[in-house]
Amino acid sequence: MEVVDPQQLGMFTEGELMSVGMDTFIHRIDSTEVIYQPRRKRAKLIGKYLMGDLLGEGSYGKVKEVLDSETLCRRAVKILKKKKLRRIPNGEANVKKEIQLLRRLRHKNVIQLVDVLYNEEKQKMYMVMEYCVCGMQEMLDSVPEKRFPVCQAHGYFCQLIDGLEYLHSQGIVHKDIKPGNLLLTTGGTLKISDLGVAEALHPFAADDTCRTSQGSPAFQPPEIANGLDTFSGFKVDIWSAGVTLYNITTGLYPFEGDNIYKLFENIGKGSYAIPGDCGPPLSDLLKGMLEYEPAKRFSIRQIRQHSWFRKKHPPAEAPVPIPPSPDTKDRWRSMTVVPYLEDLHGADEDEDLFDIEDDIIYTQDFTVPGQVPEEEASHNGQRRGLPKAVCMNGTEAAQLSTKSRAEGRAPNPARKACSASSKIRRLSACKQQ
């Protein structure tokens, strides 16, 4: 084909351009004929944790799935940006308080904090938690009735009371019990989460009196709706648990309003109706937990002794299953770290194939690490110290990083047969305790 000078094309009309061969290198194709290559998922490591896909996002930050490269346990990490926390009232204080509380709590029905990582340079905090497959609110939203069968609701409620009793025994008032803060594992274990607005009572406090509340409006008791200066913290949790039980068994809320002012007005009056299909035992329990006067409201001991709580409820309806993943529609909620794991395991070791967030990740503290002497050669063979940054567990980050890069360049065919977990650990520049 004859090559045409581009400067001469402006002298031709459209018809003349076609005659000189423009149609031979300008093609129009339908979008259905285009085959897009999927974007390669680059592996990203935060300390010893391999990052997966997004699980959810809230006002405080994002939650992603991660894999512990040492234990191969599935975890969830809450990623918090200090810049964003400053824009939220009491944001930083709530996060630090939640970390302090979770560090000393150990119960099967309370979410466990596994690790805390802090990135000084990017001003990011990573709260590594045990993995929960789904939230209770997500399960309720997945069915038209917006409720659980009585047998399933009873099982979840009993676990909620177990976890709540443990928190109260530790002198902690949750203040925000609701389905949105109750998570579930694949085995059906309920976990109380989000202790950001919780309050730890003084060890020598005479009672459970509280003065502040930041919980969700629909789950607040009349004493808070009416603006009382002080109130019983434990009875606030009992009320919120009662509203939660009402919601998961009926699909409704005892109090509603077009806006928060109308909602608080209705809560302050204390008038509500219980659907007739709840039955006398459940209705009596709800009335005891939603008692207007805090002094007359049920205690956890009274809830445990109630006939509806103690009764064994046979399954009359099919239980609400864990819904498919909202993004991938995966009904099994498979591990989202698998594509990243395959990338590390299947590809040659190259620095361009993975990302390490930083050479140094500070753990379990908000301060910069200490310094240790770096050896410097002298005339008599002895070495003197220069400062060298280290990880919180004493690992020399720069030395590990250099060693990792040197190993990656060394030709050794046997290394390709290593397991995925050992490869992740070798790529991680800074081991965590």
Rank of each mutant, 00 (worst) to 15 (best):
V3F: 06
V4G: 06
G10L: 15
G15N: 15
L17W: 14
S19V: 03
V34A: 06
Y36K: 09
Q37P: 08
R39K: 04
A43I: 08
K44N: 06
K44Q: 09
M51G: 07
Y60M: 15
K62S: 11
V63D: 00
V66T: 07
V66P: 01
L67V: 05
A76I: 11
V77Q: 03
I79V: 01
K81A: 15
K81P: 06
R87I: 12
N90P: 06
E92C: 15
V95D: 13
K96H: 10
R104Q: 08
R106M: 14
K108T: 10
N109G: 02
L113I: 01
D115W: 03
E121V: 11
M125W: 09
Y126G: 03
M129N: 03
Y131W: 03
C134L: 02
G135E: 12
L140R: 02
E145R: 08
R147V: 02
R147A: 04
F148N: 01
C151V: 08
C151S: 07
Q152C: 09
Y156P: 02
L160H: 01
L164P: 00
Y166D: 00
L167R: 00
S169V: 02
G171R: 09
I172N: 01
V173F: 05
I177F: 02
K178S: 03
N181R: 00
L183E: 01
L184F: 03
T189Y: 03
K191L: 01
K191G: 03
D194P: 00
H202A: 08
A205E: 15
A206N: 15
A206I: 12
D207M: 08
S213I: 05
Q214F: 06
G215S: 07
S216G: 05
A218E: 09
F219I: 10
Q220P: 01
E223K: 01
F231I: 15
I238V: 08
W239T: 00
W239G: 00
L245A: 01
L245W: 00
Y246R: 01
I248F: 02
G251C: 00
D258R: 09
L263I: 14
I267V: 07
G270F: 07
G270T: 07
Y272G: 08
A273R: 07
G276P: 08
P280H: 08
S283E: 04
D284W: 03
L286R: 00
L286Y: 10
M289F: 00
E291M: 15
E291A: 12
Y292M: 15
Y292G: 12
Y292F: 06
P294I: 02
P294M: 07
I300G: 02
R301C: 08
W308R: 00
K311A: 15
H313C: 09
P314N: 13
S325D: 07
P326E: 14
T328A: 15
R331N: 10
R333G: 12
S334M: 06
E342T: 14
D343E: 12
D343C: 12
A347H: 00
L353T: 12
L353W: 07
I356R: 08
D358E: 03
Q364T: 12
V368D: 13
V372N: 13
P373M: 14
E376D: 01
N380T: 10
N380Y: 07
R384N: 13
R384T: 07
L386A: 14
P387L: 06
K388F: 09
A389K: 15
C391V: 04
M392V: 13
Q399D: 11
Q399G: 13
R409P: 14
N412S: 12
R415G: 13
K416R: 13
A417P: 08
A417F: 07
S419D: 07
S419Y: 15
S422V: 06
R425Y: 13
